[in-house]
Design a protein around this nucleic acid. Structure first.
Lengths: 343, 343
DNA sequence: GTTAGCACTCATTACTTCTGAGTGCTAATT
DNA sequence: AATTAGCACTCAGAAGTAATGAGTGCTAAC
């Protein structure tokens, strides 16, 4: 168990280090007003804290830096929530503007977020699993090309241009679209391909002669991957952090950031509510010297997406955590309203 | 005027430097098979070439590096076109696959391009000035929300979700869409807002009572910015270049790359055909120590877009120039076919 | 329990020296 | 007259050394 004084020292060291990125020495600490002890006393406490694993030294005669365990303790016990009216207002303005589509809101939030924090923000867009097909439309552009447009009940629009095979005549096309709409409306996006294959393909064969080629094409339209949308903001912000003073670090960071799949995985497994992974607590090797703060936002019952901030382990946890939790509330609320009005 | 031998020396120095990034010395050059002269002779030629401004030294006893003037001469006179069957095949495969929409092709090309070269590729998407509205559709999602979908004759789809003001009734909505389609089909995207304002607003006032609110909303739909699409590929590729060994350089590079407007401007002014801007020849300060190779691609008569590669002045001009010119041909051709089949 | 004092450590910086790749010039060679 | 060998000279970069100072751990005094 830590004494009052040890808590104070630990907190002050971490706060100081987060601010300055320089190891904190006993003398400097003792000069602060809120600590009435001498450097020697503090040195003793520091030694104890180090023994317990909360602090580290970069070399034998350096000041102390927080260890990952130290940060963990700090996050779990030492941070008082911080109100950030101002930041929230910024984001609320975007959301309430009313002119932006949901995905735009998400993207703009990512940018604001990374600007407010100077870390890199990552937002995993709403999962499509819950959204359903509202309408499908095929619009001929020319005798041989057409664009297929899928609209979901959340207002998400996907489209795909394709060449019309010779075998299909425009009357057939109309028939097909009618059947598709009749049978597929309300079907969850994620099951489209399956339902199409199971229920519709057969039906169509009856109405449309020579269906094999068209079948392939429609198949292709539905098989379009529905990648989870990933928004990344402020990739270059993180370069301002003194931790990234090394060309190799920058290289490996950017190389990782280009692999969107990996990042998506990172966030997919994040837990409900606020999650904090410090350094080696992260399962992905590439960010074992960074910290990742995640916040899930919801719509109705099912979880839908994740907002995250990626920064050095020396992160402004207090600010970031309260910011993210407010943001996730705002977004959940906005989504809830939206969803409700759609019923 | 340069002698044969000077040309040879200049060419070999530049080739060598492009490959290795190390200043080239006389002794190393004299050892190459294609040069039958001694180091001393070459030193004399080098001194002359330096005096003429084609070469530089990094310090008084270093080997020579090409000056910008040297690169310029190299590009203008010394590079033989290079055939790159292999690379072209890669890209042609993407284009001819037939399943991709035009914008996807552009984006994928950008990625392939930067992978083939290890530079950063920038593609300025087709200008919308020439494309026309094919159809407008408004699809209600719920009693109070709807999504507006605009489709152009090139198969480009834009959409926007908005809240339906209380004043509009669904029958009115239908009427409006009919009028819009009737009047706006075939209008160039870029003039949509103007035409709407000039010809339609008045008409609608006749049919729909209480039109002021709806007017604002429609206005908003058409005023949606139609930003020129910019695709950037391989931002982190360029980190592998030894020129980017310095954290500050990396910072300023990435900071620039986040300013899409600036980049778009860079390319907008690029000339017809292939353009090569070396170092200070660039008008934008941020890339005065880089080289930019641009190639325009066309559709029918009007210029439509630009492909570019950004790399260090020590760039593989030969490879890049021939690659870009092939690519621009491929794309122009593909676009031409597409456009033709749309008529 | 707290603090002053002192010897000790070690990253960082500045200052040297050494090395080697490369030059420019001159004199000898072809 | 053109080419080359030879040699003194330059300078970046590596390697080694010394000085500096922020910081520690420990002991003894308060």
């Amino acid at each position: 168990m830590l004494t009052e004084r040890q808590l104070l020292v630990l907190q002050m060291i971490i706060d100081d280090f987060i601010e300055t990125a320089h190891p904190v020495g006993s003398r400097a600490l003792s000069k602060k007003e809120s600590i009435p002890y001498s450097a020697a006393t503090i040195r003793n406490e520091m030694a104890d804290l180090e023994e317990m694993g909360f602090l580290e030294k970069t070399h034998s005669s350096s000041g102390r830096t927080p260890s990952e365990k130290g940060y963990r303790y700090y996050v779990d016990h030492l941070i008082a929530p911080l109100s950030n009216q101002h930041s929230i207002k910024l984001i609320r303005n975007i959301i309430e503007d009313g002119f932006y589509e949901f995905e735009q809101i998400v993207q703009m939030s990512a940018e604001v977020l990374s600007e407010l924090t100077n870390y890199t923000s990552i937002i995993l867009g709403p999962e499509l699993s819950e959204t359903r097909l509202k309408q499908i439309q095929i619009l001929p552009l020319s005798p041989h090309t057409a664009v297929a447009i899928l609209v979901t009940d959340t207002g998400h629009v996907e489209h795909r241009t394709f060449t019309i095979p010779e075998e299909i005549h425009s009357s057939d096309l109309e028939k097909m679209v009618n059947i598709l709409n009749e049978k597929l409306q309300g079907v969850p996006i994620i099951q489209l391909q399956e339902v199409f294959h199971r229920e519709i393909a057969g039906l169509m064969r009856k109405y449309i002669r020579d269906f094999d080629k068209p079948y392939d094409y429609l198949q292709a339209i539905f098989s379009q991957e529905h990648p989870v949308k990933l928004y990344i903001g402020g990739k270059s912000n993180i370069l301002m952090q003194p931790e990234f003073n090394d060309v190799d670090k920058i290289r490996s960071f950017y190389t990782m950031m280009e692999n969107e799949d990996e990042i998506a995985n990172l966030l997919k497994n994040s837990k409900h509510g606020i999650g904090v992974s410090i350094g080696n607590e992260n399962e992905v090797d590439a960010i074992k010297d960074l910290s990742l703060i995640t916040a899930s936002y919801q719509i109705g019952e099912g979880q839908m997406g994740t907002i995250a901030l990626l920064g050095p382990t020396r992160m402004e946890y207090r600010k970031v955590i309260s910011l993210l939790s407010s943001l996730s509330n705002e977004m959940s609320e906005a989504l809830y309203k939206w969803y409700k009005s759609s019923d």
